[in-house]
Lab assay of single mutants.
Amino acid sequence: VTTYKLVINGKTLKGETTTKAVDAETAEKAFKQYANDNGVDAVWTYDDATKTFTVTEMV
């Protein structure tokens, strides 16, 4: 189990959160659900070296 981080650069929601998951795909599903629940529709990137997902909402 690995800890993954999500950085949110949204128009109305900004911040960071983490989740523990067995792999990046599982973490991504959890983070996308979190973003969807909070109304963030954005572009996703992932950095495997830092285990960090970044979501940037387009203006």
Results as ranks from 00 to 15, higher is better:
Phe31Leu: 04
Lys20Leu: 13
Tyr46Trp: 02
Glu16Ile: 09
Asn38Ile: 15
Asn9Trp: 11
Val1Tyr: 12
Asn9Gln: 06
Thr50Arg: 04
Asp37Ala: 13
Val55Met: 13
Leu13Val: 11
Gly10Ser: 14
Leu6Gly: 01
Ala27Gln: 00
Lys29Ser: 06
Lys29Cys: 07
Lys20His: 11
Thr54Cys: 07
Glu25Lys: 11
Thr18Asn: 04
Ala24Trp: 13
Val55Ser: 03
Ala27Lys: 00
Thr19Gln: 06
Val55Asp: 01
Val22Ser: 10
Lys14Phe: 10
Thr54Asn: 04
Lys32Ser: 03
Thr3Arg: 03
Val43Arg: 07
Ala42Ile: 08
Thr45Asn: 07
Val59Phe: 12
Val40Phe: 15
Tyr4Cys: 03
Phe31Met: 02
Asp47Val: 03
Lys11His: 14
Thr26Tyr: 04
Asp37Trp: 13
Val40Tyr: 09
Leu13Pro: 04
Thr50Glu: 06
Lys32Val: 07
Thr56Ala: 04
Leu13Met: 08
Leu13His: 13
Thr45Phe: 09
Ile8His: 03
Ile8Tyr: 13
Lys14Glu: 07
Asn9Phe: 09
Thr26Lys: 04
Ala35Pro: 02
Val40Ala: 06
Thr17Trp: 15
Ala27His: 00
Thr54His: 08
Glu28Phe: 15
Gly10His: 13
Thr26Leu: 05
Glu57Leu: 05
Asn38Lys: 13
Ala42His: 08
Ile8Gln: 02
Gly39His: 09
Thr50Ala: 05
Thr52Trp: 01
Thr19Asp: 02
Glu16Lys: 05
Tyr34Gly: 02
Ala30Lys: 10
Ala30Ile: 15
Val22Leu: 08
Met58Pro: 12
Thr50Pro: 00
Thr56Phe: 07
Val59Ile: 11
Ala49His: 10
Val40Lys: 06
Ala24Pro: 09
Thr18Phe: 14
Trp44Met: 10
Ala24Phe: 14
Lys51Leu: 07
Ala24Glu: 05
Gln33Tyr: 05
Glu28Lys: 11
Lys29Arg: 10
Tyr34Lys: 03
Ala30Leu: 14
Asp48Leu: 04
Asn38Gly: 06
Ala35Val: 15
Trp44Lys: 00
Glu57Lys: 05
Trp44Asn: 00
Lys32Pro: 00
Ala27Val: 02
Gly39Met: 14
Thr50Met: 04
Val22Tyr: 09
Lys51Arg: 08
Phe31Ile: 02
Glu25Gly: 07
Thr54Pro: 00
Phe31His: 00
Asp41Gln: 10
Val55Arg: 03
Ala49Gly: 08
Asn9Leu: 13
Lys51Val: 02
Lys11Asn: 14
Glu28Met: 13
Thr45Ile: 08
Gly39Ala: 07
Thr26Ser: 11
Thr26Ile: 05
Met58Arg: 09
Ala49Pro: 05
Met58Asn: 09
Val55Gly: 04
Ile8Ser: 04
Asp48Glu: 12
Lys14Thr: 11
Ile8Arg: 01
Gly10Ala: 13
Thr50His: 04
Ala24Ile: 09
Asn9Val: 13
Val55Ile: 13
Lys51Thr: 02
Thr54Asp: 01
Val7Leu: 06
Gln33Thr: 07
Thr50Ser: 08
Thr45His: 10
Lys14Gln: 14
Asp48Trp: 05
Ala42Ser: 06
Thr3Ile: 12
Lys11Ala: 14
Val22Trp: 08
Leu13Asn: 11
Gly10Ile: 15
Val43Asn: 08
Leu13Phe: 15
Asp23Ser: 09
Lys32Leu: 10
Lys5Ser: 05
Ala30Glu: 12
Ala24Cys: 13
Val59Cys: 12
Lys20Ile: 12
Glu28Asp: 02
Lys14Arg: 13
Ala35Gly: 02
Thr54Tyr: 12
Thr3Gln: 07
Asp41Ala: 08
Leu6Cys: 12
Leu13Asp: 09
Val7His: 04
Thr12Phe: 14
Glu25Thr: 10
Leu13Glu: 11
Asp47Pro: 00
Asp41Val: 12
Glu25Arg: 08
Tyr46Phe: 04
Tyr4Ser: 01
Thr12Gln: 09
Thr17Met: 14
Thr50Cys: 03
Ala49Cys: 08
Thr45Cys: 08
Asn38Met: 15
Ile8Asn: 01
Ile8Cys: 13
Asn9Arg: 09
Ala27Asn: 00
Lys20Cys: 13
Thr2Phe: 12
Glu28Ile: 08
